[in-house]
Design a protein around this nucleic acid. Structure first.
Lengths: 215, 215
DNA sequence: AATATGTTTCAACAACTGTTGAAGAGACAT
DNA sequence: ATGTCTCTTCAACAGTTGTTGAAACATATT
């Protein structure tokens, strides 16, 4: 047995296994028995700790959401203070939105990569998308929208929100790690290289927002 | 019975029902019995016409893919001819990519809206994404990438492909119609208004690509 | 009228699903 | 030792799943 890791509780083992399987196969394709087997526990234990399958999925999803929100909001606050009393620059806002998630040592942990797969699944799912993303992420996102409105006082609501839509869609697709970019570029670009993608996306998205401010 | 429509074959009825259900609930959550019930036929008929469930999904997905590719490639060819012998402008290329899908009378047909939901599901699914999207859409997409490279000779491969990634992610999320934009903007922006989103996205994405060309 | 061909339905299969109640295991205080 | 508590397993449930083989139906050809 690979006992190099710290011993995790069986409850956490279930969450980890669920995270990995939900990310790869979605909600319905994953059975509680598969989760239990991967976690090395009995089927009934998932029910004891989390109740219905639905609730296990939500708890798995929300476990890391608060951490991401904290990282992001700290970065946003930092760039706001740096610019005060002027509004923060568009580039710094976009950077605060992307950098905490797309760069850093946590990307080497499989748990985080798995979680990102879950985010991609939830955010583009008609069934889960609306409800769950809103509950877990909207408060933080609203702070970013507000900052963008301050940085782009001339931009219309339509332009701001559809701009955010482009940003969110691009990040979601990056999280999905479908490998399409690799196939399309015949290996010249690597979909799983989030840090490399971060560098490109900051420029691209910043340019988009700066354009809509000039109207 | 609402018999205003032209009578469709039972085979097409199955495809239509599958399209609607797969778009809303994904692959695994949809049962062949649910599809058969919606189509008004027996369960075994889906198997007779399409074989395994897997193949029914793929055929449903590919049914409209060729049409979309044709529309897009015609638009791309038109803007290339318009600009010849110069390369087409970035804006015209992006417009050729988005306009055929996000505007036009076909958006009023429920079948097309359903299909867009399937595209969103497939494109951001780790399981299907790589394989199926590549098979159905890559040839057309490669033409667009090539056009972008001609319009932006200074841009690096990384910039071009990650720029396309942003474009594809934004479009995919728009197709998912999760209603998140409505919630985020408190009703000021409508997620399902693809024509309105088209106007914003063309500007936003074009600005992104034009930026990466200046380096 | 008889035959052949392609559709459609019926009934059933073995396997698997989420969920549950009762029983066991372990730690800890009394 | 005894009882209490949380955690964990066992065994089983009722229902649903994709898939199939045989039979019924329809239509056109001979």
């Amino acid at each position: 047995m690979a006992e190099t890791e710290v011993k995790v509780s069986r409850k956490d083992a279930i969450l980890d296994a669920a995270e990995a399987l939900f990310a790869e196969h979605g909600y319905d394709a994953v059975t509680l028995r598969a989760i239990a087997a991967k976690a090395g526990v009995d089927v009934a234990l998932a029910n004891y700790h989390f109740g219905r399958k639905h609730e296990l999925f939500e708890q798995t999803f929300q476990r890391r959401a608060e951490i991401l929100n904290t990282w992001r909001l700290q970065a946003l606050e930092a760039c706001r203070e740096k610019a005060a009393p002027s509004p923060a620059s568009v580039r710094d806002i976009i950077d605060a939105y992307l950098r905490p998630l797309m760069t850093g040592p946590h990307l080497k942990e499989p748990g985080w990569r798995n979680y990102y797969g879950m985010v991609a699944y939830v955010n583009s799912s008609t069934a889960w998308g609306g409800q769950l993303m809103t509950k877990s992420y909207n408060p933080a996102i609203e702070s970013f929208i507000e900052a963008l409105k301050e940085a782009l006082p001339e931009a219309s609501d339509d332009a701001i929100y559809w701009g955010y839509h482009c940003l969110s869609g691009a990040l979601t697709l990056a999280f999905a790690q479908t490998g399409r970019l690799d196939q399309l570029s015949r290996g010249k670009v690597c979909s799983t290289d989030l840090e490399g993608g971060y560098l490109q996306m900051v420029d691209f998205i910043t340019a988009g927002f700066e354009r809509i401010g000039k109207r």
